[in-house]
Design a binder for these strands. Sequence first.
DNA 1: GGATTCATGTAAGATGTTACATGATTGT
DNA 2: ACAATCATGTAACATCTTACATGAATCC
Lengths: 203, 203
Amino acid sequence: MNNLGYAILSALGRKPCSGYELVQYLEALWPAKHSQIYPQLTKMEQKGLLVFEHIEQTGKPDKKICSITEKGKETLEKWVMESPSDPIMRDELLIKVNSIWLSDQESAKKIIQDRISNLEQQIVDREDIIAEMECKHRFDTMSKHFGRYLLFNRRNMLEKEEISWCKWALNFIEKVNINKLLLGMIGVGKGSILVEDMILFII
Amino acid sequence: MNNLGYAILSALGRKPCSGYELVQYLEALWPAKHSQIYPQLTKMEQKGLLVFEHIEQTGKPDKKICSITEKGKETLEKWVMESPSDPIMRDELLIKVNSIWLSDQESAKKIIQDRISNLEQQIVDREDIIAEMECKHRFDTMSKHFGRYLLFNRRNMLEKEEISWCKWALNFIEKVNINKLLLGMIGVGKGSILVEDMILFII
DNA sequence: GGATTCATGTAAGATGTTACATGATTGT
DNA sequence: ACAATCATGTAACATCTTACATGAATCC
């Protein structure tokens, strides 16, 4: 079984739900498009890890509610104990920042500023969800939602720290440019003072 | 062109290098195995984005040094200005944390403690590299290494914050368990006081 | 009237991983 | 002796994305 499969089992452990709902739930866990979810669910049903229940709806398309089976629960339980492999992050911004030397100051600053805006929006949205969790899930039902609660707080902490980095980087970029302009030293020799300046600035 | 291609161009913009070296360089930017790099380089050479230079070596296998072309530079420059798409993070740990309710306290704590160890190791390693960068790249050569310098600091900031979350989560897990044990309330009713306790603890 | 939400599925293509293949040098 | 580093490549497979396909209800 693959990670998507375990993520689905983890989601269904909380409560049974449709493939459509899974797409949303998994966004914070292991993002996947519906075109990946539905075939995966079929495979998992064939393996006996989950069962389908067909629900007819009026005014809406019919849906298939998936529930985790005993076998599914056992499979997940066994996997959870194994140590996880290294995380992988793919972010175009990193490539763009790495290429910063060939773009002008303003363009460089703009991509970072846009990132700050995106992060800020995501944080306010997530803070609403966290508040809702704290309000809605009392202790008796909290247990199954506890992990998700930890994860939402994790994301917020990391995104706030990313904003801190963005601001630090913006200041740094500005500092470098001001130095370049003031001393008229684009690529000229005695710049070693500048680097010390920059390093002082970091500390 | 795909993101891997732009990452390669970004790497080659700094200095020409072999496919083998690219694998290491790209780890912090857009990780890829050599089996993906070599065919990608061939495609990019055919498109005129880079050129190969065959270097014969004694005692070591021969290598092919790739250099970015004017067309490659222009392609990268154009792409850098476009706004990046959303980052994607895939981390098995998240699925395991989400499934925390079905593993025992000790196993749950262990996976988080292991993560802390990994992060701490990565941070000390990266701090060495950062120190080396600050030392080696004086102002005249800094420009092309500037983006990478920003990125290494970014990673360190984020990983330090992840450690903070891990420690917060460990405390939280312990707190929940102590409450469960003390009050003997596994799944029993009047737990609402506990949740308040937990929320107080977060604040 | 047009976009979004709900709801499921398939097909084609792009991207990424694991395994197979070779072979000398250097460090433990 | 054995593992790791340097160095490049292919093949098979797994994973993920984009596009095609349908269709009613609700919101702006």
